[in-house]
C-alpha cells in the first residue's frame, strides 16, 4: 500500500522502552521494582514511601502514599528550600 512508509512507527519504537514489572516513584521518578506481592515500598533514592497494589501479578502500582511519612518528608524538604532561599 502507498502509505506504508517505514517498518516501525513511533509508537512501536517507543514501545521498545517498556519495562514490565517496574514502576516509577511518584516523587523522584526513579524506576523501581518491588518483591512480588509487597504491600508497601520505600524508594531507595528519595525515601518516600508508597503503598502498593498489584493489578496484575507481575505489575505493581502505587496505590497511594504512606501519608505520614511522605507529608513529613515533603515538609522537611520545603522547609529546607525556604531556608536556602532566605
Amino acid at each position: 500500500m502507498t502509505n506504508e512508509r517505514r517498518a516501525e512507527t513511533t509508537a512501536e519504537a517507543t514501545a521498545r522502552g517498556r519495562t514490565y514489572g517496574a514502576f516509577r516513584c511518584l516523587n523522584c521518578f526513579e524506576r523501581n521494582t518491588a518483591p512480588s506481592g509487597a504491600k508497601s515500598f520505600k524508594c531507595p533514592k528519595c525515601g518516600f514511601e508508597w503503598r502498593l497494589s498489584w493489578p496484575m501479578p507481575t505489575q505493581p502500582r502505587i496505590r497511594g502514599p504512606v501519608w505520614e511519612t511522605n507529608r513529613r518528608l515533603a515538609e522537611e524538604a520545603t522547609a529546607k528550600q525556604t531556608k536556602g532561599e532566605k
Binding site: M1, N3, E4, T10, A11, T14, A15, G17, R18
Partner: peptide
C-alpha cells in the same frame, strides 16, 4: 507514549475504509 498515533491511524483508515491519507 507508545499508543497509536497519526501513523497508525493512516493505516487504519486505509485498511478499513479505503481512504488513502498520509
Amino acid at each position: 507514549p507508545n499508543f497509536p498515533n497519526f501513523e497508525e491511524w493512516s493505516k487504519l483508515l486505509y485498511y478499513n475504509t479505503g481512504l488513502e491519507m498520509t
